[in-house]
């Protein structure tokens, strides 16, 4: 009797459990990972510390500043957008580990603006967000390959590609510096090879090309680079590297009294960041620069004015620079993507 009762109880429990499982398997409203009735969770990896973090470590604060503003004004259809930020120190293996954490542990809906060509590539191969259906929105690199929807189906570029930048630089050189000796400093990886491809298409011939290994861009190394440019008698020197490389170059050039016509790539061309490392502003004077977004000091521009006002309130005392503007612009575009994805956004929609 007792045994029978126990069996009935067991059966009942089993049935209940099965029903429970079945119920939970039915997609509820907003069943997408990282999306709840009240919030949407996004994740970001980038260098917050280490050599390459210079300037870029302001991006999360900038993106959060915009999301906070958005959340205070109704969010995305009532859902508040939160951003989980992880430091990868610009090391691809760490980007892989941190991205795994974001997807598996923090369960973010999408990755937002991960930074660095090598890092995004490593993540694409090792974590494979495409296979998991995880969107990688607006990667913070201009490597042309990421625009390839077949190879990286869930990855979206936002910055113009390094090839485009090199081509436009090449055009400018042809129109303004014809017959001059051109020197190029570039990073010895995909970031740099994209640049080389662009310059080749544009038909630029270099008197001297100086590659540097990512992570080696110190002032001591820059002294060697400058010695090379000097020996080749370059009239125009293009700095196509990260901010820390530009800073090391310009700072050391000031010490060595080296003054060619500088041309700065947009990646490492943010004036605020460069000046922060102690490079005198005068060194930058008359350098040629490139940007897809308005000048950060142009307060007649409605976006610049709008973003800088929000940023000044959110992060008082921090200068509004190109990294901040791009960070907020990316957050703004992500917000539109989420809004356009309908009342119950999913990774697919």
């Amino acid at each position: 009797m007792k045994a029978l009762q126990r069996r009935t109880l067991l059966t009942a429990t089993a049935v209940l459990a099965t029903v429970g499982l079945a119920v939970s398997a039915i997609p509820a409203q907003a069943a997408e990972v990282g999306v709840t009735a009240t919030g949407i969770k996004l994740g970001m990896t980038l260098p917050m510390t280490g050599t390459a973090s210079l300037g870029y470590n302001k991006i999360p604060g900038a993106a959060k500043a915009y999301f906070d503003y958005l959340n205070a004004n109704g969010g995305i259809n009532g859902r508040k957008v939160t951003l989980v930020v992880k430091d990868d120190r610009y090391v691809p293996t760490e980007a892989v580990a941190k991205t795994n954490e974001l997807i598996l542990k923090d369960k973010v809906m999408a990755l937002l603006a991960p930074l660095g060509t090598a890092n995004v590539k490593a993540v694409a191969t090792s974590v494979n967000p495409a296979r998991r259906g995880v969107p990688v929105l607006f990667v913070n690199t201009g490597f042309s390959g990421f625009a390839d929807a077949k190879k990286y189906p869930t990855t979206y570029a936002v910055l113009p590609s390094y090839i485009m930048e090199a081509k436009i630089m090449g055009q400018y050189i042809k129109e303004n510096f014809a017959g001059k000796k051109i020197g190029l400093l570039y990073q010895d990886d995909d970031f740099g090879s994209d640049a080389l491809a662009g310059f080749k298409t544009a038909g630029v011939n270099f008197a001297v090309k100086v590659p540097y290994a990512s992570g080696s861009q110190g002032a001591a190394a820059a002294a060697g680079w400058i010695t090379k440019f000097k020996a080749a008698e370059a009239d125009v020197v293009i700095l196509f590297g990260v901010s820390s490389a530009t800073s090391a170059m310009l700072g050391t050039a000031a010490q060595l009294g080296y003054k060619p016509q500088w041309m700065l790539g947009s990646v490492g061309g943010d004036a605020t960041t460069i000046k922060l490392t102690g490079v005198p502003a005068g060194v930058l004077y008359n350098a040629i620069g490139f940007s897809p977004v308005p000048a950060t000091t142009d307060m007649t521009d409605e976006y610049v004015k709008f973003f800088s006002d929000i940023y000044a309130k959110a992060v008082p005392g921090s200068a509004f620079d190109l990294n901040v503007l791009l960070g907020m612009n990316t957050a703004f575009m992500a917000a539109q993507a989420l809004k356009a994805a309908g009342p119950n956004p999913t990774r697919k929609s």
């Binding site: 050599t51 110190g218 001591a220 800073s247 102690g278």
Partner: peptide, 11 residues
């Protein structure tokens, strides 16, 4: 002798 920057992960 470098750029004067110091961090725990300094290369």
């Amino acid at each position: 002798n470098g750029n004067g920057n110091l961090s725990p992960d300094s290369s």
